[in-house]
Amino acid sequence: MATDFDPIENGPARLPPPEARRFRVDFGLLFIASLSLSAGIAVWITQGPGQFFHLLWGDTAMILSLLPKIFGGILLAIALSMILPRDRVLRLVGPDSGLRGLVIASGAGAVVPGGPHVTYPLAMGLMRAGADAGAGTAMVSGWVLLGLNRVLIWELSFLPGWLVALRLVLTLWVPVAVGQLARIWARRVPLPDDAHPGHRR
């Protein structure tokens, strides 16, 4: 593929500020910690410490097996955000990309296979490279609601075809609509930089 852009000019490639690299405790972490702690305590009380540790070890094994995938996904997203030509991303899925941009983002979310460890890093990479909150939301919504992978592999093997088709037809407009609302919202109140270090919006 010919590259007709200058990555030095176009790549965001901004380093996170030093304070962002330190361990951060924020709302997200506190929320998730209190939720998980309460659930853990409830399991301990209602089902006993045996079940508690059984679940905990199971999770540890699962997380360990996921770690390389998660890190690979992040590496992919950051490399992508440096390679993607910012002007083109802006035109395609930037704040002024209109409904067309939201349709593109929703479609990308629906088509890209690989689950959370691909789609979230991809949305993050696109947002670092110039996509707006509307396109990011449309992409995530397109994946969770219309994801082809899940429809073909999972839904059709559990449910009758007419039901899956009805769900898809009724849901088709949703990612674009939710994306448009998120875009309007972000125009009034921009998304804060609360996701991760080096996040550009």
Partner: peptide, 21 residues
């Protein structure tokens, strides 16, 4: 949402998406 979206996209992105959906 708890395992990936909150961490990667940030709480504001997630909360807005959930409210709008």
């Amino acid at each position: 949402t708890l395992g990936s979206e909150l961490a990667l996209m940030g709480p504001t992105f997630l909360i807005r998406r959930l409210i709008l959906s």
